[in-house]
Design a protein around this nucleic acid. Structure first.
Lengths: 199, 199
DNA sequence: CTAGTGATGGGACCAAGTCCCATCACTGTA
DNA sequence: TACAGTGATGGGACTTGGTCCCATCACTAG
């Protein structure tokens, strides 16, 4: 069924990002956000669990990522399946059109610990989803977990670079590069039975 | 300088854990906690940043861990330095005497998302500390980061097992075992240039 | 005995978040 | 056209987390 003005959640999220960027997260009231969106405070909480969630509500990450990992060839190595997931994100989520939004959002989150805390929780949740996805591919639990941790690390690195206003590479390239770097670093950490730095 | 009744923060933390365990985190107000500790609400916020922090205030993890990693032999492999850190935790923090407390705390945290969110943030912070500690040992940034992530994973696994009421092993043994398992899993993930499962 | 110091008590105050109910726009049906 | 039903909204009352400020208390040094 339609509404007066459609897309209330989107309008709220836009208003929130604007206000957070203008005067900061602390100096912005939920009432402020709702009023700028032309809505009431109670309507805000009908669409978002709390004030922080307005910046994380989309959370369209886990879905495409898990689906693409599941769809990766059965014989693909663990981190290759992760790479398939990253490709899906580059295609469906982290598109060039959304980069400007992400850059602003990044700055807002970096400016307030409450938002960083929520981001940390989202990260844990996403890693758990990746772990399940890898386990569903038949990997032993711990291997799935390590793969997910390494993948999550690469994703954070790539996302951070993509959110950097000075960077114009597309997300797919950044993600593949980050994954390769993490893989190389992991090999160095293990470095066979030897020690680091090698004599 | 002394006070009326000493150890206000400890009394508050004890009262909070009791009340959270009795009636749940949601059904316990800060006023309840303060009154059970024989203090005022404003005194609670003088000792803890917020209601969640009363369960995390100690946070004595990073200090000993970082110090022991720094003190590890210069020629030790990255994960061996991490193992030194775990030994320090077993000696100074996760002592048998504190296990009962940890078991109760674990149950409380597992019962409420707000506390899990705070725990996630503490985890990120601890991983960052480990990353710096490894970087200070001269490791390249990414190698330090991967080492810290793998170490943090092993720590979470060991801590979870140690907090399990059915387990009576000392923390040191659990940590060493977890670290070995994570290392083995990481080798499987990498598995050289090949694929998994290997044909 | 007195002044200084640090911790505490307690109340006013703001904002987050919950709850509930009236109201509005729209839809399908008679 | 009239009317009931549905889902989203408005708005106010209320609880609680969290901040701020100031008076007060216990203890200590002189």
């Amino acid at each position: 069924m339609a509404r007066w003005e459609p897309n209330a959640p989107q309008r709220l999220a836009d208003a929130a990002l604007e206000l957070f960027a203008e005067r900061g997260y602390e100096n912005t009231t939920v009432l402020d956000i709702a009023q700028r969106a032309g809505l009431a405070k109670s309507t805000f909480f009908r669409h978002f669990q709390d004030k922080r969630e307005v910046l994380f509500g989309e959370n369209a990450l886990a879905g495409p990522l898990v689906a693409a990992i599941a769809a990766a060839p059965a014989e693909a190595a663990p981190l290759d399946a992760v790479a398939c997931g990253f490709d899906a994100l580059a295609r469906d989520v982290f598109t060039p059109a959304r980069r400007a939004f992400t850059v602003r959002r990044r700055a807002v989150i970096d400016a307030h610990p409450d938002l960083q805390e929520r981001e940390a929780l989202k990260g844990v949740s996403l890693t758990a989803s990746m772990t399940r996805a890898m386990a569903d591919r038949g990997l032993p639990d711990l291997v799935a977990r390590v793969t997910a941790e390494l993948g999550a690390l690469a994703l954070r690195i790539a996302y951070r670079r993509w959110s950097d206003s000075g960077n114009t590479d597309e997300f797919g390239a950044l993600a593949r590069r980050a994954l390769g770097e993490v893989q190389a670093a992991a090999l160095t950490v293990e470095g066979g039975p030897g020690r680091f730095p090698r004599p």
